[in-house]
Nucleic acid binder design. Structure first.
Lengths: 331, 331
DNA sequence: CTGAAAGCGCTAACAT
DNA sequence: ATGTTAGCGCTTTCAG
């Protein structure tokens, strides 16, 4: 492997000149420049970026902390982040935490140890047990929840949930079940808050038996639908699901039990996965601008990294409420 | 930011000892060790990994080249890779190529410039226009196609496709449409080969009008279904779709046109996304062991990186053919 | 415009 | 067991 010194020797110039030729070509005479070119091609020289980054004290890398990369919503956010940081010459290190606190630690350590300059966190902030914010690590939260104690970009989960339930109520539903995410997950908390706001406004009593504790994964939608189906005459006429995965599988569960959607039960989701408009019936849901959330959070992080003080540190992006075929007025 | 030298000074030891204490604690006396500990905590010392990697000439990082991270299949493969390399102390750099050759180049350059030690490529190998294999960059292909000219792990796309179409034929179908991926995509080519093998065996004539050129995305399933629907009495009785996304949206398209699945038309997919068992009707499809493909390819790469010669360089993993509700015998 | 030389933070001989 | 020192490949003053 040839180094800059080899190129210097080969071209009869000094390492300093080679370095300049590479970083600022017009500060070097054309004649030297072509010599450098020739030497580089001859030796097939590739700069050692590890050395460069070390020397420059900048890794030009960020890490993305993500609970589970094989979740479409997160994957879309990541895609958004990747695209903007890449334009700025940054790379992204993937930090799949698998929900484990320890792995989260390890990835955060990457920025403490200079392997990355900053971090965007897709895991929603937990009140207790959250490590961030941390001195010396610049971080932003993407797609998180209310009251995240460091810069964040997200949608208004409470408001969105409220809107969905309002709509269900406007359709005449009074008995509205919920398929929740994990109980202590901030998204679950925010979205449940929206649900409660809405039914309260309508004078509907909150009934714990209408809340099924899921975990945001497909299978829990299925078991939730079993649970609700067994409620028989006390079965809700509508189901507010805290994400599309659970909504889609809940539909399947109800269908398997011979119910019709939306005739027998209305179902709503949250996220608007690409697939949600193609399922049958197409899902009524909240569309989170996942890609946009990623892009905005990346821009924010980049600003922070440049030492600029962004005028805002909490971006609440607009969402869409998309009414499709899985909801209808009560019979 | 404190350096190893500060720790040395603070503890009254030398940098060499600190270094050893960190990398091989038992080669240092307990007394010194505790001094080192004390100094580290006092100064809140964090080693500069950039320096370490530079010095050690190893980045302990791999890059994953992926056409589109917001595609569930790829996301699952990535998840598999991440988990195994992480266990070995490696990090992963995400290389979302967005299908652009130039970006692919840039990411490959990362290993040439020492930013990464190796690479796993999720973009299937193209005969022409493929840059890999490259001298000096150790790479493995994951989830690719036949005849990839460097180590690879994948399933037998041709055989799997053949199996699906065989099944359709066994159900009495003779007019079997195809929703293909991009024409020059290796997966399209392999899977079409399987289709042709199968119908040929059955003595069915190949009819170009039964092949619709999609692009692996949802919307093309929809437009494909329009195309086939307009064939009227020449409409196929079954549709072999080259991935689940297109199959799911093709189902939606047919449903929208008032057809029943599988009664009026059978539909099959490829990939077995998590969602595919929850759509209605549940999709008959090929299950690629995405996570496993990721894991195996990571292990392979790690071996290569250690200079070991793996006894195999082409792993063809088993797939499952999963018969669900979207297919039935012809009326 | 170009060259010489110092030094980034760490590790690995080598010496003690 | 510990200290000393050279040097990884690059950039950046500072002189010329």
């Amino acid at each position: 492997m040839s180094t800059i010194r080899d190129v210097a020797k080969e071209s009869g110039l000094s390492t300093g000149t080679i370095s300049k030729a590479l970083s600022d070509p017009k500060s070097v005479s054309p004649k030297s420049l072509s010599k450098v070119q020739a030497a580089i091609t001859k030796l097939n020289y590739k700069p050692n970026m590890l050395s460069q980054k070390f020397r420059n004290k900048q890794s030009k890398t960020i890490v993305i902390l993500v609970p589970d990369i094989a979740n479409l919503f997160f994957a879309q956010v990541i895609s958004g982040i990747e695209h903007v940081v890449h334009k700025h010459g940054f790379s992204v290190l993937l930090g799949d935490t698998n929900g484990e606190k320890q792995r989260e630690q390890e990835y955060i350590k990457m920025v403490e140890t200079r392997l990355a300059d900053g971090l965007v966190n897709l895991c929603p902030h937990m009140d207790q047990g959250s490590i961030l914010p941390l001195e010396n690590v610049v971080a932003v939260s993407a797609g998180g929840c209310e009251n995240t104690p460091y810069p964040s970009v997200r949608i208004d989960n409470v408001g969105a949930s409220e809107k969905v339930v309002d709509y269900l109520i406007s359709l005449g539903h009074r008995r509205i079940g919920v398929i929740s995410g994990l109980e202590d997950n901030p998204h679950s908390i925010d979205r449940l808050k929206g649900y409660r706001n809405s039914i309260e406004k309508a004078g509907i009593k909150f009934e714990p038996e209408l809340i099924y504790g899921g975990d945001f994964n497909f299978w829990s939608g299925l078991s939730a639908s079993e649970y609700f189906y067994r409620l028989k005459d006390k079965m809700p006429t509508a189901l507010f699901c805290m994400n599309d995965d659970m909504a889609i599988s809940a539909m399947k569960g109800m269908l398997n039990n011979g119910l019709k959607i939306p005739e027998d039960i209305s179902i709503t989701g949250f996220d608007d996965l690409q697939v949600s408009r193609y399922v049958n019936p197409a899902l009524t849901t909240i569309s989170q601008p996942a890609q946009k959330i990623g892009e905005k959070s990346a821009e924010l992080l980049l600003q922070l990294l440049e030492g600029k003080n962004p005028n805002q540190t909490e971006y609440v992006l607009p969402y869409d409420f998309i009414i499709r075929e899985s909801t209808s007025a009560i019979k």
